Amino acid sequence: MARVTVMIPTQRRPDGLAVAARSVFGQVGVDFAELELVIVDNDQVPSAKPVADALRKGAPCPVIYVNEKRPGVAFARNAGMARASGDFIAFLDDDEEAPSGWLAALLAAQERYDADVVFGPVKARAPAHIDQHRDYLERFFSRIGPAQAGVIDYHYGCGDSLIRRSALPDPVAPFAVERNFIGGEDDLLFGHMGAAGKRFAWEPAAWVWEDPVPSRLNLGYTIQRAFAYGQGPSAHCAAAEPRDNLGVARWMLIGVGQAAVFGLVAAVKWAVRAKDRAEWLDRAARGLGKTFWWGPFKIQFYGRTA
């Protein structure tokens, strides 16, 4: 049984998958005898299998390939969990690359703070040809946290995280399948864990690179995604048991105010072609998301495998 499982969910990104996996093989300060890599291919055809087979040759740890044909990010993560044997699960996305000290830093922080989940920074890097809104786009795809390591009372997403398996509400299928196509399955899980008193920690030394898919490096994608991120607080209150109607109403009112104020600022910034105009449009979109969060306004980002 592995002490640590590194899991990489993937969907039709063979080059990114290879980079992410090889960065796992390049880790230092870890015992590869206690490590396994689980690749979860969320595709109706096993498109990532040739990459996994090639990676397995000469790998310093077992490489386990899982083909989850059912479309959806929660299905993919749960399929990987069902095959993983580790006491700790480290998540790396297929557009990320981990420096050599990444995993050792996550494990050291977990032990230092007796943490149930450890999160690290994500540093996005856009290709050289991206000029317009470059700073905004790199910030959008990055995760920026405190400068100092320590226990935190909030959470981030799954990419670049280490989870103590025994702390999960369900160690085999912890991710909510109702979030398959819209994302946020990790936010929902960590929200439940936080409410149950689980301990979160932040380790700035456990950072990774992220190379966003080129088709996403534009405002058409990021503003839609900002709208979806904005839906999170309202949707989380609506999904609570019992349903937090007061919380839903509060977040919707906050959203109205943000959409109005930030939208006005964005309009002015756009009119004068201000360098930071995309930032304000993003904030306005997140406000709108808090207000319009239910069924017909949900945007599908995941689960398209046909």
Rank of each mutant, 00 (worst) to 15 (best):
E241Y: 14
A274F: 06
F292G: 08
R3K: 07
P127K: 10
A128M: 10
W209P: 01
W280V: 03
E97I: 10
Q27T: 13
V213Y: 11
A167G: 10
G101Q: 09
A240W: 11
A278L: 07
V256P: 00
E68R: 02
G255W: 01
R83N: 00
L168Q: 13
S215H: 14
A104Q: 05
R164Y: 08
R179G: 06
M81N: 01
Y154W: 11
G157L: 14
N67M: 02
V63R: 03
G287H: 00
E36G: 04
Q300R: 10
V28Y: 07
G184V: 01
S142K: 02
K290L: 12
G150C: 00
L246D: 09
V261P: 01
G191R: 09
L288S: 14
Y229A: 06
V118H: 03
S234N: 07
A84P: 02
G159F: 00
R134A: 07
D160N: 04
S215W: 09
F181L: 09
P233G: 11
G58K: 11
W280N: 03
R22K: 12
D87Y: 02
F227T: 04
F297G: 06
A20C: 12
I144A: 02
R125G: 06
N42T: 05
F140Q: 06
P14C: 14
S166W: 14
P50Y: 08
A149D: 10
K57N: 15
V45D: 10
A128E: 09
L217P: 05
D160S: 03
G58H: 15
G183R: 03
A79I: 00
R250F: 07
Q231K: 09
A206G: 00
A266G: 10
V40M: 00
L188Q: 06
L137T: 06
G159A: 12
D153A: 05
